[in-house]
Computed example of a mutant assay.
Amino acid sequence: MKHHLLPGILAMAAIVVASNILVQFLFGQWLTWGAFTYPLAFLVTDVMNRVYGRDAARRVVFAGFVVGLACSFIGTQISGEFGPLVTLRIALGSAVAFLTAQLLDIAVFNRLREGAWWRAPMVSSLIGSTVDTALFFTIAFSASLAVLEPGNDVSWANEILPLLGVGPAVPLWMSLALADWMVKLALALLTLVPFRIIVRSLMHRAT
């Protein structure tokens, strides 16, 4: 393994592990604490892409994907109040969403890398975050995909309630997805500052 990839791989692994743990703890009515750590994966991917290039970013993403699979497997072996902490649908949704969104982030970033410094990380993270949220919550909780795991009762996630408590009546999982998506968008903007600082620091060391 090339030594310059190690910090990125360790950072990505730490984010994935922390998010898998923190997703078990609620933050308010619509979020979990994991919603605030997981979006940092896009920061790691974008920093690696900017400093070391597309291939390095992909290697870091695939390392994070493997760690995520391991976390999901462990979660399936741990029983909580309502059954396994991680169901097949959650594991599948997490894996598909992570890999698709992160690779899309890399592709979009690469297309925009020659523009203003902030454009590539901002646009790629916004697009990747949107795809990530849509894929995960749909695969994990939508009643239309119950065939993926017939024995998994997700009726609680499909209870019809006002969107975020104030909007039109929709399945609960859509409110959870919207809240998660809004946090991702906010962090995509806020992490532009550490992105700039970290990239400058790494570029300076390289010279």
Rank of each mutant, 00 (worst) to 15 (best):
H3Y: 12
H4W: 02
L5P: 01
I9V: 15
A11M: 11
A11E: 10
A11Q: 05
A14M: 13
V16Y: 05
V16T: 08
A18K: 10
L22G: 13
V23I: 14
F25G: 11
G28D: 06
G28Y: 08
G28S: 04
W30V: 00
T32D: 10
A35I: 11
A35D: 08
T37S: 15
P39Y: 08
L40S: 15
L40V: 09
T45L: 13
M48S: 08
V51F: 01
V51E: 09
G53T: 04
D55S: 14
A56L: 05
A57P: 07
A63C: 09
F73S: 06
T76A: 09
G80I: 14
F82Q: 15
G83F: 12
L85E: 11
I90D: 03
G93K: 02
S94L: 04
V96K: 11
L104R: 03
D105K: 05
V108D: 04
V108T: 08
F109A: 04
F109H: 14
N110C: 07
N110H: 06
N110P: 00
L112E: 01
L112V: 05
R119E: 11
P121V: 10
S124C: 10
G128Y: 03
G128I: 02
S129C: 10
V131Y: 07
T133A: 08
T133Y: 00
A134D: 10
A134Y: 00
L135E: 06
F136N: 12
T138H: 08
A146F: 13
G151P: 01
D153H: 11
A157D: 07
L161K: 10
L163E: 04
G165N: 03
V166L: 12
P168H: 00
V170G: 02
W173Y: 15
S175L: 02
A177L: 03
K184R: 10
L189E: 11
L190C: 13
L192S: 07
I197M: 12
I198A: 04
S201D: 03
L202Q: 04
